[in-house]
Nucleic acid binder design. Structure first.
Lengths: 138, 138
DNA sequence: GTATGTGCAAACCTTTTGCCTGTCG
DNA sequence: CGACAGGCAAAAGGTTTGCACATAC
C-alpha cells in the first residue's frame, strides 16, 4: 500500500457521486501531484477486481466508479439534468432473481437503470446537492 | 437511400441477436463487398438517432445493436458463454415505473440486465442457437 | 447538377502496457 | 536487497472524421 493508492482510495471513499477516471485523477492530483493517470487506471482496476469498487456505464463512453456497498442498489438518471439518484428496493431484487431462476439461471449480478424526467409538481428535493442525500429506500 | 444502406438495414432486420459493428460489417460484406466499416458506423448512428435501432452495452468495450421494437424487453447474459437471452416481464415494467414515480419522476426509459450462470440440471435450451428462439415471457 | 453517401486512412479518445526507475519492508 | 508500485510515453482498440470520389434523384 503506497502513498498514491492511499490517496486514490481516499478520494474514492469521499466521493458520493460517480466520478470517471479523469475526475478521479483531477481530485487525486489536487491532494498529491505526483500521481499519473496510469496509476488511477491501474488502481481502479485493482479495486474493481477485489470487489471494493464497481464500474458503471451511464453512457458517454467513459466508465464511472463507485464504492461497492453491501446490498445492491440502482440508479435513476434525470435525463434533463444528468443527476444520478441511487435507490434500493428489495422487491426488485427478488423479482429479478426469480426471473433468472425461471429462465434456468442463477443470478450472479445485475443492474437496472431508470431514465426519468422530474414530475412538474413533485417532491423533487432539488437544489444544492447536499452531498450526502444518500440512498433512498423505495 | 443507397445500396450500402439497404444492405446494412437488411442485415439488421434479419438479425435476431445483438451484433456489434464488427459483426455487422462482416455480415454486410458477405452480401456486398463494397462496404466499409466507416459506413456501418455511420449507418448505425443514423438509425439510432432516428430511433430505428438501439445501442446496447453488455460490457466488453464495444457497442451492440438491435432493432427497436414496440414493447420493452430485457436481457439476461450467460456469464460463462456470453449468450444473451431476451425476455419480457410486465411485473418488472410496472415495478420500475412505480419506483420512478415514488422518487418523483416520470419513467422515460429504462434498462435491466441480469448476469447469470446456468443452473446445473436446468432446462437450458442450449445447443445451436436456433436463430429465432425469440423473446421469452417470464 | 447538386446534395448526399462512401471509401480510405488518419485522427481521436479512453484504456492498457512496456520499460525502466522509485518505493516499501 | 527483492518485490512490487508508479511515471512516462507509446500502443491498442473502438469510433469518428476530412477529403476526394461516387451515387442518387
Amino acid at each position: 500500500m503506497t502513498g498514491q493508492r492511499r490517496v486514490i482510495a481516499h478520494v474514492l471513499s469521499e466521493a458520493d457521486d460517480h466520478p470517471d477516471v479523469e475526475e478521479l485523477y483531477r481530485r487525486a492530483s489536487a491532494l498529491d501531484n505526483r500521481i499519473s493517470v496510469a496509476t488511477v487506471y491501474r488502481t481502479v482496476r485493482l479495486l474493481e477486481e477485489r470487489g471494493i469498487l464497481e464500474r458503471r456505464d451511464f453512457g458517454g463512453g467513459r466508465a464511472r466508479y463507485e464504492a461497492s456497498e453491501n446490498g445492491c442498489h440502482y440508479h435513476l438518471i434525470d435525463i434533463d439534468s444528468g443527476r444520478v439518484i441511487e435507490f434500493e428496493n428489495e422487491e426488485l431484487v427478488s423479482l429479478l432473481s426469480q426471473i433468472a431462476k425461471k429462465l434456468g439461471f442463477d443470478l450472479v449480478s445485475h443492474r437496472a437503470e431508470l431514465f426519468g424526467r422530474a414530475e412538474k409538481g413533485a417532491t423533487a428535493d432539488e437544489g444544492k446537492n447536499t452531498s450526502s442525500e444518500g440512498k433512498k429506500s423505495v
